[in-house]
Amino acid sequence: MPHDHHDHDDFHHDGMSPSGHPYRADNDTPLTYWQVMEIAIRELLIDKGIATASEIAVQIDTMDARSPADGASVVARAWTDPDFKGRLLQDASAAARELGFDIGALRLIAVENTADIHNVVVCTLCSCYPRNLLGLPPDWYKTRAYRSRVVKEPRRVLAEFGLTLPLSTRVRVHDSTADMRYIVLPARPAGTESLSEEQLAALVTRDSMIGTGLPKSPA
């Protein structure tokens, strides 16, 4: 029988699917307190006519459509247009809107990496992140390990991300403790003089805008 062949058993012993992914347990457990609260509030908003189910779905779609590619195009513009870069560093929210991004009420500050300065962003108190430009944060950004460690030993944390900085580079950690959100403007990689703005944007990674990485080098 096909279900009894040896490889299949091995996959089960490893806890991995044939394509190499761990199996995820079915979520048959009871709802948590906060899951119940979310459902209750959503249903109340709909019952009381404050929002419709489709309006809520549209908001979820809008947030899901935001991605680091939006931030990457802001960075690429700043690399190619010095005036825009000036405006970005002065008022990053206005600069992002200038490129047509619907960032809502986001109050954004751009911090610039230079030859001597490396910036990295965290929210120690919760998980503040420029979602309205970059989309949802990576899971690690919200972990207690990242949040507590990057303010105390940023160099060690960055080294774990593969980014070892010399002591001559000043590390600036930005803790998003209140109303501002932050995006790192990474330094433009060497050897990119001939690239178009679109090609430059493809080099800008999510992590390079959080500060836990650098942009990719041109192929």
Partner: peptide
């Protein structure tokens, strides 16, 4: 200032928004 002798590099900085 924040971490004293435990700081990885004393001249690195930490910015936060404070009321």
């Amino acid at each position: 200032e924040v971490w004293g002798a435990e700081a990885e590099n004393p001249d690195d900085t930490l910015d936060a928004e404070i009321f």
